[in-house]
């Protein structure tokens, strides 16, 4: 009876996860696997196939590809630092404040979640671009040497910060639940000032959330396309636009796939970090 019950449950479980698993394998894992394998294969004129790392060798010896990779790393790191610098104080403020202003701040910070990236990009072009609203406003107050970040490395950074703020804030706000009002008061009670409390109490309790923020944002930022494509410079460019151009304009799908694999491997480091964080949470 018992073993029959267990097998029925197992069968039901398999039936439950079967369809999504099949979709994932057919539409995601198989084509991805084929693409990855193809990046390691060379087809000769006679149709014979041989294994080769030539595309990866080309990527890492081509100064332009390396410059694009470095630009992507730079944009990711700078955006991540700015996201944490902006969102952590907001999360702390929201955690300890119950006021109408706090509700407004929260709504404003989460607003970008409901705005598609392409609209953000167009809005930012109109706002921070040459002869945009910001430049006009600055000129009204007598500042005439405005240099637009549009089409500079800072363009994507601004757009990506705007775009990734809601997710970052949600994770950090959830993480702040670990920091109780009483834990802060207990620290004040034994003599800690606000700087010490931030450094010795809040930050250590937020480490897990910060790592999750880092993992999820790096994965998303590193492979981002719309905002870097719309706001970023043409050269060097981020991996997203670079892959598209290699694929559709240069018409080298195999090399584009190699670029995608490199992007995937870079992101997977942070993906593993995220999974480790989740596993550790479950252990506790």
């Amino acid at each position: 009876m018992g073993s029959e019950g267990t097998s029925t449950r197992n069968l039901k479980g398999l039936l439950l996860i079967g369809p999504p698993l099949a979709v994932m394998v057919c539409l995601l894992l198989y084509p991805a696997g084929v693409s990855i394998v193809q990046t390691l294969q060379e087809t000769a004129a006679d149709g014979s196939v041989s294994w080769s790392l030539a595309r990866y060798h080309r990527f890492f010896t081509d100064p332009y590809s390396v410059a694009n990779y470095v630009r992507t790393v730079w944009t990711t790191v700078v955006t991540l630092i700015l996201l944490i610098a902006i969102c952590l104080p907001i999360a702390i403020y929201l955690h300890f404040t119950r006021s109408r202003l706090a509700a407004v701040v929260q709504a404003l910070a989460l607003f970008p979640m409901f705005v598609p990236g392409i609209i953000v990009a167009y809005a930012l072009i109109r706002y921070i671009g040459p002869n945009g609203l910001l430049q006009s406003l600055l000129e009204v107050v007598g500042f005439n040497s405005y240099s637009s970040p549009y089409l500079t490395p800072w363009g994507p950074v601004i757009g990506l910060v705007w775009d990734h703020m809601p997710l970052t804030l949600l994770i950090l706000t959830a993480g702040m639940a670990k920091v109780s009002q009483e834990a802060i008061e207990a620290a004040r009670d034994v003599g800690a000032g606000y700087v010490v409390i931030f450094h010795r109490i809040i930050l250590p309790l937020m480490v897990e959330s910060l790592l999750v923020v880092m993992a999820l944002n790096v994965i998303s930022l590193f492979g981002s396309f719309v905002i870097p494509y719309m706001l970023g410079p043409a050269s060097p460019e981020m991996m997203g636009p670079y892959m598209l151009r290699t694929f559709s304009e240069v018409r080298q799908p195999d090399f584009a796939a190699a670029q995608a694999v490199i992007t995937f491997l870079t992101c997977s480091v942070f993906g593993i970090l995220y999974v480790v964080m989740l596993t550790r949470k479950q252990d506790v």
Binding site: K178, S180, E182, A183, E185, A186, A187, I201, P204, L205, V207
Partner: peptide, 10 residues
């Protein structure tokens, strides 16, 4: 404090 308020990272 009522909730002990110990710092769990220490």
């Amino acid at each position: 404090f009522q909730s002990h308020a110990l710092w769990t990272h220490m």
